Lab assay of single mutants.
Amino acid sequence: MAEAPPRRLGLGPPPGDAPRAELVALTAVQSEQGEAGGGGSPRRLGLLGSPLPPGAPLPGPGSGSGSACGQRSSAAHKRYRRLQNWVYNVLERPRGWAFVYHVFIFLLVFSCLVLSVLSTIQEHQELANECLLILEFVMIVVFGLEYIVRVWSAGCCCRYRGWQGRFRFARKPFCVIDFIVFVASVAVIAAGTQGNIFATSALRSMRFLQILRMVRMDRRGGTWKLLGSVVYAHSKELITAWYIGFLVLIFASFLVYLAEKDANSDFSSYADSLWWGTITLTTIGYGDKTPHTWLGRVLAAGFALLGISFFALPAGILGSGFALKVQEQHRQKHFEKRRMPAANLIQAAWRLYSTDMSRAYLTATWYYYDSILPSFRELALLFEHVQRARNGGLRPLEVRRAPVPDGAPSRYPPVATCHRPGSTSFCPGESSRMGIKDRIRMGSSQRRTGPSKQHLAPPTMPTSPSSEQVGEATSPTKVQKSWSFNDRTRFRASLRLKPRTSAEDAPSEEVA
């Protein structure tokens, strides 16, 4: 009796068929016929556990003709996506030579605008209408194809895939403007070719909807975003200037109206006075309405000098805001240009540092100066060695804690006790272990408590650290204090090793 083939788990290929790579489910599931010992083939499952149809090819690079078809379809799909992405970037994010197409579109729109203006002049109306009709045909074809291509290429973005995504893309403001202008152009052409009475009025009214094509030149909205950011950044200043200017306008108009309503027919109503105030304070000055009385002229002159300053403030605020924003954008561009080279330089330096163990090129690091100058660790070890030599091999803490019996001779020589300023008595072995921070803190506390006492003391002649007598400086308080830590004499004296002298005989010792 033939044995059933062993159940295979995992992703390994079956024996005897090495080139074939078959994806098997996580659990080997066989058909009921196979479990019962029949000759049925096992049921194939996909990666998600769903059964595959009987005629479906197995996924994998070596699955025969199905694999070749899959490779061809995958390559075609990649080319399709690449083309779609390229078209989308050309239309929505132009760079380099892609601006040539947008310059061509701008020339078409500008020519249409010029011809629309010439069509309103009686001398050039006939020729402009003929040229404009031909140009409209060209623009309908160009913009119609462009609109379709834009909607198709938007599928390269995830949020615009599918018919719902394309509809979302078509609802964008600039796409809506394109659609309105396209419909208006078709209506103008249809009305112009019919030759009816309505054609002339339709051409004159709907052609100027094509002015909206100038708005579509900035599809990404960079200028509007820049203007919005400047207004938002200086909103408080703008609101303040406009508010005060509006108050000056209504008060000036009302007072001039009261002064001129009886003697001047131009100011017969408050609305006429508001019109005069707006034209005057905005420095336009049509001259259609002028005050005639001396009181009205004085009020107009005073409020004009006051109001023009507030009406001119928004222009200066926006101008300075634009300058600052442009400078910030230039700085951001320079930062973006330098970020990648800086990151590459840091990575290269780290690779060199991690692979080169000698690091002989590091001549400006802490390790280099640590090898030249005595390190703080060596100074600490030197302090501890000196203290243990004086205390008979014991550390200062051990000397303080060691009990001394009554009447027993002390094995240590008597030492002079010292007192730290602002604290109780402490171990004499710690007097010379006072660090730089303690010395600086002690000097600052003395300056806070009594700076007036220092200038009363007789001035001391500054001497070099080499000429100081070591026996005289029994305490860190003898170090000359200065008002600034930048004094080199104080810094050098604080680094010197001060020996400890006994109370009975204080021989001067120098520590090399």
Score class of each variant (00 low, 15 high):
residue 284 I to V: 07
residue 87 V to G: 10
residue 237 E to D: 01
residue 195 G to R: 04
residue 34 G to S: 07
residue 119 S to A: 09
residue 30 Q to E: 07
residue 56 A to G: 04
residue 186 V to M: 08
residue 183 V to M: 04
residue 328 E to V: 02
residue 198 F to I: 03
residue 142 V to I: 11
residue 120 T to A: 05
residue 180 I to M: 07
residue 310 F to S: 03
residue 299 L to V: 04
residue 88 Y to D: 01
residue 194 Q to R: 03
residue 338 R to G: 00
residue 104 F to C: 10
residue 251 F to Y: 06
residue 291 P to Q: 01
residue 127 L to R: 03
residue 115 L to Q: 10
residue 159 R to C: 13
residue 302 G to D: 00
residue 84 Q to P: 01
residue 124 H to N: 03
residue 45 L to V: 10
residue 199 A to D: 02
residue 328 E to A: 02
residue 171 R to G: 05
residue 176 V to D: 00
residue 253 S to P: 00
residue 320 S to Y: 01
residue 105 I to K: 00
residue 126 E to D: 06
residue 132 L to I: 15
residue 268 S to Y: 11
residue 272 D to Y: 00
residue 252 A to V: 02
residue 53 P to A: 14
residue 101 Y to S: 01
residue 58 L to I: 15
residue 246 F to L: 01
residue 295 L to M: 05
residue 283 T to I: 00
residue 264 N to S: 02
residue 255 L to R: 00
residue 286 Y to C: 01
residue 276 W to C: 00
residue 259 A to D: 00
residue 232 Y to N: 07
residue 31 S to R: 04
residue 307 G to D: 00
residue 84 Q to K: 02
residue 331 R to Q: 00
residue 146 E to K: 01
residue 71 Q to E: 11
residue 339 R to G: 01
residue 169 F to I: 01
residue 49 G to C: 08
residue 165 G to A: 02
residue 209 L to M: 15
residue 237 E to V: 00
residue 182 F to L: 06
residue 297 R to T: 00
residue 299 L to R: 00
residue 316 G to C: 00
residue 58 L to P: 15
residue 245 G to W: 05
residue 43 R to H: 15
residue 153 S to Y: 00
residue 78 K to Q: 11
residue 254 F to V: 03
residue 196 N to I: 02
residue 215 V to L: 10
residue 304 A to G: 07
residue 296 G to D: 00
residue 243 Y to N: 02
residue 155 G to A: 03
residue 67 S to T: 08
residue 207 R to H: 03
residue 305 L to V: 05
residue 234 H to D: 01
residue 283 T to P: 00
residue 138 V to L: 13
residue 208 F to C: 07
residue 52 L to P: 06
residue 35 E to G: 13
residue 5 P to T: 07
residue 219 R to P: 15
residue 252 A to T: 04
residue 346 I to V: 03
residue 295 L to V: 04
residue 272 D to A: 03
residue 173 P to T: 04
residue 310 F to I: 14
residue 96 G to V: 02
residue 33 Q to K: 13
residue 336 E to G: 01
residue 130 E to V: 06
residue 30 Q to L: 06
residue 285 G to V: 00
residue 268 S to T: 04
residue 217 M to V: 04
residue 1 M to K: 02
residue 210 Q to H: 09
residue 263 A to S: 09
residue 153 S to P: 00
residue 273 S to L: 01
residue 45 L to H: 07
residue 131 C to F: 14
residue 143 F to I: 09
residue 191 A to S: 11
residue 231 V to G: 01
residue 69 C to W: 05
residue 204 R to H: 03
residue 257 Y to C: 01
residue 166 R to P: 01
residue 342 A to V: 00
residue 215 V to G: 14
residue 189 I to V: 00
residue 134 I to T: 12
residue 10 G to C: 07
residue 48 L to M: 06
residue 302 G to R: 00
residue 4 A to V: 11
residue 266 D to A: 02
residue 302 G to C: 13
residue 149 V to I: 05
residue 117 V to A: 12
residue 144 G to D: 03
residue 7 R to S: 07
residue 6 P to T: 09
residue 131 C to G: 03
residue 203 L to M: 05
residue 237 E to K: 01
residue 221 G to D: 02
residue 241 A to V: 01
residue 94 P to S: 03
residue 110 F to I: 10
residue 158 C to S: 06
residue 85 N to Y: 15
residue 329 Q to P: 03
residue 231 V to A: 02
residue 133 L to F: 04
residue 335 F to Y: 02
residue 223 T to P: 15
residue 230 V to M: 00
residue 164 Q to R: 07
residue 54 P to T: 11
residue 332 Q to R: 09
residue 34 G to A: 06
residue 292 H to R: 07
residue 86 W to G: 05
residue 148 I to F: 13
residue 320 S to A: 00
residue 108 L to Q: 04
residue 333 K to Q: 02
residue 179 F to S: 04
residue 136 E to A: 14
residue 109 V to L: 05
residue 201 S to F: 06
residue 224 W to R: 00
residue 3 E to Q: 05
residue 179 F to V: 08
residue 124 H to P: 12
residue 218 D to N: 03
residue 99 F to I: 05
residue 64 G to A: 14
residue 50 S to N: 06
residue 323 A to S: 15
residue 296 G to R: 01
residue 162 G to R: 02
residue 24 V to L: 09
residue 288 D to Y: 00
residue 213 R to P: 02
residue 304 A to D: 00
residue 316 G to D: 01
residue 61 P to S: 12
residue 344 N to K: 07
residue 62 G to V: 10
residue 5 P to S: 04
residue 250 I to V: 08
residue 335 F to V: 01
residue 248 V to L: 03
residue 282 T to I: 00
residue 122 Q to R: 09
residue 325 K to N: 00
residue 319 G to D: 02
residue 290 T to A: 02
residue 311 F to C: 00
residue 104 F to L: 04
residue 308 I to V: 12
residue 147 Y to H: 03
residue 174 F to L: 14
residue 297 R to W: 00
residue 6 P to Q: 12
residue 260 E to D: 01
residue 155 G to R: 01
residue 13 P to H: 09
residue 274 L to H: 00
residue 92 E to K: 01
residue 146 E to Q: 02
residue 189 I to N: 03
residue 203 L to R: 02
residue 160 Y to H: 02
residue 129 N to I: 08
residue 2 A to T: 04
residue 127 L to F: 10
residue 276 W to G: 01
residue 167 F to C: 10
residue 190 A to D: 01
residue 27 T to S: 06
residue 50 S to C: 02
residue 291 P to A: 00
residue 280 T to A: 00
residue 165 G to S: 00
residue 247 L to V: 15
residue 142 V to D: 01
residue 3 E to V: 08
residue 89 N to T: 15
residue 216 R to L: 14
residue 273 S to W: 00
residue 293 T to I: 00
residue 144 G to C: 08
residue 335 F to C: 01
residue 24 V to A: 07
residue 171 R to I: 15
residue 53 P to Q: 14
residue 49 G to D: 04
residue 65 S to W: 10
residue 129 N to H: 08
residue 74 S to T: 08
residue 76 A to P: 12
residue 254 F to I: 02
residue 316 G to A: 00
residue 51 P to L: 11
residue 93 R to P: 01
residue 275 W to C: 00
residue 141 V to G: 15
residue 336 E to D: 00
residue 189 I to M: 10
residue 201 S to A: 12
residue 75 A to T: 14
residue 319 G to R: 00
residue 267 F to Y: 01
residue 50 S to R: 13
residue 89 N to K: 13
residue 157 C to R: 09
residue 250 I to T: 01
residue 168 R to S: 12
residue 41 S to P: 05
residue 88 Y to N: 14
residue 161 R to P: 02
residue 16 G to E: 07
residue 57 P to T: 09
residue 16 G to R: 04
residue 211 I to T: 04
residue 195 G to C: 07
residue 344 N to Y: 02
residue 195 G to S: 12
residue 118 L to M: 12
residue 170 A to D: 01
residue 35 E to K: 04
residue 45 L to F: 14
residue 311 F to V: 03
residue 194 Q to K: 13
residue 208 F to I: 14
residue 243 Y to C: 01
residue 246 F to I: 02
residue 4 A to T: 05
residue 68 A to P: 06
residue 207 R to P: 01
residue 139 M to R: 08
residue 234 H to P: 00
residue 199 A to T: 08
residue 309 S to C: 02
residue 205 S to N: 09
residue 128 A to S: 04
residue 263 A to D: 04
residue 255 L to P: 01
residue 214 M to V: 10
residue 142 V to L: 14
residue 216 R to G: 11
residue 274 L to I: 03
residue 339 R to S: 02
residue 307 G to S: 00
residue 143 F to S: 11
residue 230 V to E: 00
residue 336 E to V: 00
residue 216 R to C: 04
residue 68 A to V: 05
residue 184 A to P: 03
residue 221 G to A: 03
residue 253 S to C: 10
residue 158 C to W: 15
residue 219 R to C: 15
residue 326 V to D: 10
residue 38 G to R: 06
residue 292 H to D: 06
residue 68 A to S: 08
residue 150 R to Q: 02
residue 275 W to R: 00
residue 116 S to Y: 04
residue 14 P to R: 15
residue 85 N to S: 15
residue 37 G to R: 11
residue 228 G to A: 13
residue 347 Q to L: 13
residue 288 D to G: 00
residue 137 F to Y: 05
residue 126 E to V: 08
residue 20 R to C: 15
residue 98 A to S: 04
residue 98 A to D: 12
residue 317 I to V: 13
residue 262 D to H: 04
residue 220 R to H: 12
residue 63 S to C: 15
residue 106 F to L: 09
residue 231 V to F: 04
residue 68 A to T: 11
residue 209 L to R: 02
residue 70 G to C: 10
residue 148 I to N: 03
residue 66 G to S: 05
residue 68 A to G: 07
residue 323 A to G: 12
residue 325 K to Q: 03
residue 142 V to G: 13
residue 162 G to A: 05
residue 5 P to A: 05
residue 30 Q to H: 07
residue 227 L to V: 15
residue 180 I to L: 06
residue 76 A to G: 09
residue 95 R to P: 02
